[in-house]
Simulated assay, not measured.
Amino acid sequence: MGNPPIGGVSIKDVEEAAERIAGHILRTPVLEAAPGLFLKLEGMQHSGSFKARGGFNRILAEGELPEAGVIAASGGNHGLAVAYAARALGVRAEIFVPTVSSPVKVAGIRALGAEVTRTGAVYAEAYEASVLRAAGSGALEIHAYDHPEVVAGQGTIGLEVLEQIRGVDTVLVAVGGGGLVAGITAALDGRARVVAVEPETIPTLHRALLAGGPVPVQVGGVAADSLGADRIGEIAYGVTRAAGVLSVLVSEEAVVDARLELWRSFRTAVEHAGAVAFAALRSGAYVPAPGERVAVIVCGANTDPATLA
């Protein structure tokens, strides 16, 4: 343990991120939903998802920022996180979002004071536009998932899981671009198993592991506004492949069911992406062994509660 995995993010990077962002992010609660089953409620984080961790770490690690501030492309949650961190730190923010982004999230980004540009049908197209804008303005680009400091920031969840859940065996994590699963894998450093969970409609990591490297996939389904990357990040692929992370897929129906169950049984309102990891248990895509202690990362709660009625 303690060696940098392929991909360039190590437990040391995550520990440094935890020190850097302390005081800026919340230590989110853990709910024991059943004996041996724990829900890490990261939807209660600032900006409504885990992504505030990576956003703060990227900005704070940079030190002096350009006058143009920061720029990011996002399906919604990363944009909310960057906008929140920028406002907290007194920095200008510009966020590019695709047309698929939830109106709830877009309104939230604007409410945090960031400038919003809606362009492109999917995240990848919004990202291309943001890169061009950053090149012209000089703003600091904050990638949604494929940057070491963003990944390390997300990984601080893993450190909290180890502290909050004694003897945890397995951590289930939803995957889009892979920043969260890469960071948590680095943070756990072999002390618990990681299971990557993806909707069947956006299998970025699953396809990459089969192909031997990141490959483009079609993007669609109920979780596309949050998990809408069209290929896994290079860092995530390297880290998960080196660590032997198990990849499982869940159906659209399983995600919808898991989201409703989180509301019915635990009064936890989450977006569809936030229910993806839990869906692996509900659907049987991942079946724990007897006595296995499992943590589920409930990663985001930026949703319209009216859709849970």
Rank of each mutant, 00 (worst) to 15 (best):
A211E: 01
A242L: 12
L80F: 10
L26W: 12
V270T: 15
R267Y: 07
E15L: 11
V131D: 04
Q45I: 08
E200N: 06
P214D: 06
N302E: 15
T117E: 02
L132F: 11
A186D: 11
L162I: 05
G233N: 03
A196C: 13
M44R: 14
I297D: 07
A295Y: 01
A81W: 02
V245D: 14
G120T: 05
H24A: 04
A174P: 15
L140A: 04
G221E: 07
L172I: 00
V215I: 06
V173P: 01
H147K: 14
G274Y: 14
V287H: 04
S283Q: 01
A211P: 01
T185P: 06
S74C: 07
E15P: 12
V97T: 06
E128Q: 14
G155F: 07
M44F: 15
E200S: 10
A135Q: 15
V122W: 01
A301R: 12
L41E: 13
A81I: 03
R133D: 07
V296F: 00
E64M: 04
A129F: 12
S265Y: 02
A144D: 09
V100G: 01
D189V: 13
S251C: 14
D13C: 02
Q45S: 09
T170A: 01
A121W: 10
G7M: 03
A192V: 11
A309L: 14
I95C: 10
S102H: 02
L132C: 07
S283T: 00
G136K: 15
P199M: 08
A211R: 00
S102M: 04
G108M: 11
L80C: 06
T156W: 03
L227K: 06
A34Y: 13
S283E: 00
S10A: 08
A52N: 06
G291C: 12
L205E: 15
A126E: 09
G69I: 09
I95S: 08
V14I: 13
T170P: 00
I142G: 06
L188R: 11
V195W: 02
D169R: 06
D13M: 01
S47I: 02
A144V: 04
L89A: 05
P214L: 10
P66S: 09
V70E: 07
S137I: 09
A124Q: 13
G90V: 04
R92T: 09
A33H: 10
T170K: 01
R92W: 05
T28G: 08
D304H: 05
A277M: 01
V122G: 00
P5K: 10
A236V: 11
T201F: 07
G233Q: 08
